[in-house]
């Protein structure tokens, strides 16, 4: 039977305040610590919204904004939420400026053909990434935040500056679109009779 999955909870790190203060003073070690603490989450988010080609450029821009903006960070939101918001805004702005140039086209999806063999699709990750690239940037953002990073709808809404209900409906539509795009692969998974891919209980780091 298809059952709900467990979700990680977001946690806030009490050491953030000290780290922020040290970064505001321009302490190199603190800045590096903050960078390493968030680099995978920021880069993963940016990478999946803007694509591999522009990910480094946009991630660099995000961290520059983070360090230059820490002086005005008032702590109304968790540090992680604030950093995610900068990353999402920078990524969506970049995609809007770029238009559809450079996005993965239908051809790429077709190249990632459905498997013939009746076993777990070894290229499922590629297929999922390619399908994500077909989505509107806003759908990509909510999928990354909620389903990949494991954030709650409240956190997603705070990051994307929308209502919780909007976050939920966007996620539902995005998943529906993914299901359409992955149709053949999902049918193959079902034909194999395997259960859904288990979600790991520690799949998200939560927000610090």
């Amino acid at each position: 039977m298809v059952r709900p999955r467990a979700r990680p909870t977001a946690a806030s790190g009490p050491e953030d305040a000290l780290l922020i203060e040290a970064c505001r003073r321009g302490e190199q070690r603190a800045m590096e610590t903050l960078y390493h603490q968030y680099k995978r989450r920021v880069f993963g988010l940016v990478h999946r919204i803007v694509g591999a080609a522009d990910a480094e450029e946009v991630a660099q821009d995000v961290f520059v904004r983070v360090f230059r903006g820490l002086g005005s960070f008032r702590g109304d939101a968790a540090l992680g939420t604030w950093i995610y918001r900068l990353a999402v805004n920078a990524s969506l702005s970049h995609v809007a400026r770029r238009g559809r140039r450079g996005e993965v086209g239908d051809d790429e999806l077709e190249r990632v053909a459905a498997p013939e063999e009746a076993r777990r699709d070894p290229r499922l990750s590629e297929r999922v990434e390619a399908a994500m690239a077909q989505l509107p940037a806003g759908y990509r953002a909510i999928l990354v935040l909620h389903d990949i990073e494991g954030l709650s709808h409240e956190e997603c809404a705070a990051i994307m500056d929308c209502r919780v209900g909007t976050s939920k409906s966007q996620l539902h539509k995005a998943r529906g679109r993914m299901r359409e795009l992955l149709g053949p692969a999902l049918a193959a998974e079902r034909a194999r009779g395997g259960g859904p891919v288990p979600a790991s209980d520690d799949g998200g780091e939560g927000l610090a």
Binding site: D147, R175, R190, V197, G203
Partner: peptide
């Protein structure tokens, strides 16, 4: 099941 596969696949990326 399809939805669950999508969610699981995303979480396993």
């Amino acid at each position: 099941e399809d939805h669950a596969h999508v969610i699981g696949a995303l979480a396993s990326l």
